[in-house]
């Protein structure tokens, strides 16, 4: 009996090496989380410092004091009052909104054709899509600029928006990658039912590709929001058509040493992106993963 009594004791003693493993696990937990927290500070630090500066007076922003002596929330209002932030925002929204819409209308069919149709030169077409996607925008800038100059559309945002009607390489690429993952059976079934290509696309493909479409739409929108080179090239001479990027890039110059306002403007330009992100985080992360291309 005693053995049966001791047995559990012994078996209780058994976890002894396990406590070592547990301690290792705890240490491991602490170590990894410590690194994570350190990284978190590194990633968040700049934003915090920018936020603090945005609330300082302009005199304090030039000092080495990091904590605002007074909290000047009115700086944000000042940014609107002292710059054309509202105009810039509207322009950016127009560029990003129309650009995204046009891109979707034109790129989805192309991606669909590349993913579904069998035709000669299909591979070549796909390779060309990648080539144009990777092409530095500067390479063909001169002739394209001349084309738009001919139509009198330089100094507007149209040279950046209208080409979206003819497909965007990156979006085509991404959509195609996704559409390839949709099993052929679905489209074949639709075909058997006598659906036209168009109906197949609308009825079968679009509902299934919703996450990918959402992702490319978001990417396109953010790309436009971010774009500096395009607006710099085309709308530089006309302040009425500046976008947020362009406006922000000259902000410090026009408001010389007012770092506080510059930082407030920086935050204002960033905020909408972050807000959108929180609503569409999953779509976003999945989309990014899609760009990674598994081998």
């Amino acid at each position: 009996m005693s053995t049966t009594l001791t047995a559990p004791r012994r078996s209780r003693a058994l976890p002894a090496p396990a406590t070592g493993a547990r301690r290792r696990r705890v240490l491991h937990w602490i170590a990894t989380h410590a690194i994570a927290v350190a990284l978190a500070i590194m990633f968040a630090g700049p934003v915090v410092l920018v936020g603090l500066t945005a609330l300082m007076t302009d005199e304090q922003a030039l000092t080495t004091n990091l904590w605002p002596e007074s909290w000047n929330w009115s700086n944000f209002a000042d940014v609107f009052a002292k710059s054309h932030l509202l105009t810039w925002t509207l322009n950016t929204l127009m560029y990003a909104g129309l650009g995204t819409l046009f891109m979707l209308v034109s790129s989805i069919p192309v991606a669909y054709a590349l993913a579904r149709f069998r035709f000669r030169g299909r591979k070549l077409a796909f390779l060309l899509v990648i080539t144009t996607m990777m092409l530095p925008p500067q390479v063909v800038a001169v002739p394209i600029y001349l084309i738009w100059a001919r139509f009198g559309l330089t100094e507007t945002l149209w040279p950046l928006i209208l080409p979206m009607l003819l497909g965007d390489a990156f979006s085509i690429f991404l959509l195609r990658q996704f559409l390839l993952t949709i099993p052929r059976e679905y489209t074949d079934a639709a075909r058997v039912d006598g659906c036209s290509d168009f109906r197949t696309l609308v009825r079968v493909i679009l509902p299934m590709a919703r996450p990918a479409i959402a992702a490319v739409a978001l990417f396109q929108f953010f790309y436009c929001w971010n774009d500096y080179y395009g607006p710099l090239l085309y709308t530089w001479i006309n302040q009425d058509n500046w976008t947020l990027s362009l406006g922000l890039s000259t902000f410090k110059a026009f408001h010389s040493v007012q770092w506080n306002l510059t930082m407030a403007a920086t935050l204002l330009v960033t905020a909408p992106v972050i807000i959108v992100f929180f609503f569409a985080q999953r779509v976003f992360i999945e989309g990014v993963t899609l760009t990674g291309v598994k081998g």
Binding site: A149, G152, T154, E155, W236, I237
Partner: peptide, 12 residues
């Protein structure tokens, strides 16, 4: 100046 030159170039 840049803006002037560019405006002239694009006929604006």
């Amino acid at each position: 100046d840049d803006q002037i030159t560019q405006a002239i170039r694009s006929g604006k």
